[in-house]
Write a protein that binds this DNA or RNA. Structure first.
Lengths: 108, 108
DNA sequence: CTTATTTATTGCAATATTACGATTAAATAA
DNA sequence: TTATTTAATCGTAATATTGCAATAAATAAG
């Protein structure tokens, strides 16, 4: 026990949950916000922005990469991290559809 | 160590992360989808829909309630669970704003 | 008051996450 | 080659999550 029963849910449910889970930590929200704020996306300085050690940031970036919401391009000695617009749009679309369905109900 | 350093992030960051975290489990996504599917929202039968024990469902509902994305109205002996449209809309708006910001950049 | 019915809580075991120091890997610069 | 810089990985401790059996709480029906 203690492990999520992934096999019982649809691929779509697991995928959305995975993205939401990746976004479910304030440090990772802060990283996303930083990537949006900064013009150039050469972003080793996320470490300087957040009160977390470099290995911790690296781990958070890994999780964001794993769900696809960001991607990293090697740019010389640094790595350029970017938000993947497609994945973000997909995520928004899922919940927008839900919100639309909800509006046509008005239950409680 | 091991605990999230909540105090270092803004209230907005923590709030969005909390909602995302609550949605970051396939069972909870499945619960949200069930609430959208069913016409009446008298929903003790979530237990019958998902392959999880009643206490586990109850716990998942609690987490969804904690972040505000659902609310429960007591209806006799049963409880009527509903998605809170305001919270869902707020969540969508946050990421929509992010997506708009992103479109005006085109970095990587 | 008793007995169902429905949902919440408690307690616990298995597993996952968070965070960091130490180290390693990879690329560039000197 | 030898630093230097930048990012990833390893190992590990602290904490959180997931899931369920057992139990409790609350309301409804008889």
């Amino acid at each position: 026990m203690g492990a999520t029963k992934t096999e019982f849910y649809t691929a779509a449910q697991n995928e959305i949950a995975l993205i939401a889970k990746a976004l479910g930590h304030p440090a990772r929200i802060a990283i996303i916000e930083y990537l949006l704020k900064v013009d150039t996306c050469i972003c080793g300085d996320i470490v300087n922005e957040l009160p977390l050690a470099q290995p911790t940031i690296s781990q958070h970036l890994k999780e964001l990469k794993n769900c696809g919401i960001i991607k990293g391009n090697i740019e010389g000695t640094a790595i350029c991290y970017c938000i993947d617009e497609k994945v973000l749009t997909h995520f928004i679309a899922y919940f927008s559809t839900a919100a639309n369905t909800l509006q046509q109900k008005k239950c409680c």
